[in-house]
């Protein structure tokens, strides 16, 4: 191995193809280390100046967005709960109001109904009285007519049978018969 590395200083390619590990051929270490350092410095600057701040910013922004969104969602949820409560309260109020209006309307209708009933009763009573009066008149009229007709008929019958009829007697007899 040692001989390989000493040979390699003058014949790098030849030494590399000889049996042994190219890793231990120290002639090319300088070259590798030089390029490695450049590589590392480039990667370091690319990462520390561009990539890492950018990714950190994106991650922070995302975290902020998520936090904000969750806060907004919670706020909206609270608002929804509030709205639901307001709705329920309004509903309950409306029910109470409706019940009150129904009761009021019922009472009003009842009062109107009572008035109307009374009025109707009064009217009916008046009409009944009037009718009774009319019936009484008609009845009395009818009675008088019957008496007249009976008187006349009786007078005719009496005059036909006995020739002579005293109106007063006839009337008295008819009255007596009609009462009986």
């Amino acid at each position: 191995m040692a001989s390989t590395s000493t040979d390699a200083t003058s014949h790098a390619a030849e030494a590399a193809s000889a049996p042994g590990m190219p890793q231990l051929d120290f002639s090319n270490w300088g070259n590798q280390i030089f390029w490695l350092l450049i590589t590392l410095v480039v990667i370091y600057f690319v990462l520390s100046r561009i990539a890492l701040p950018r990714i950190a910013a994106v991650l922070a922004e995302r975290q902020g967005t998520i936090t904000n969104d969750i806060a907004a969602a919670e706020e909206l949820k609270a608002k929804a709960v509030e709205a639901e409560e307001a709705y329920n309260k309004a509903l309950a109020d409306a029910k109470v109001e409706a019940a009150r209006i129904v009761a009021e309307a019922k009472a009003e209708i009842q009062a109107e109904l009572n008035v109307a009933t009374q009025k109707a009763d009064a009217e009916i009573a008046a009409k009944a009285a009037e009718s009774e009066k009319a019936i009484a008149t008609i009845r009395s009229g009818a009675l008088a007519s019957i008496k007249d007709v009976a008187n006349a008929t009786t007078a005719e019958l009496v005059s036909a049978l006995s020739g002579k009829a005293d109106d007063a007697d006839v009337a008295k007899a008819v009255d007596a018969q009609m009462k009986g």
Binding site: A12, A13, N28, G30, N31, F34, W35
Partner: peptide
């Protein structure tokens, strides 16, 4: 076939 300090190699 000489690998100097600044030679661009396959490793580079």
């Amino acid at each position: 076939d000489h690998v100097g300090l600044f030679t661009i190699t396959n490793a580079t």
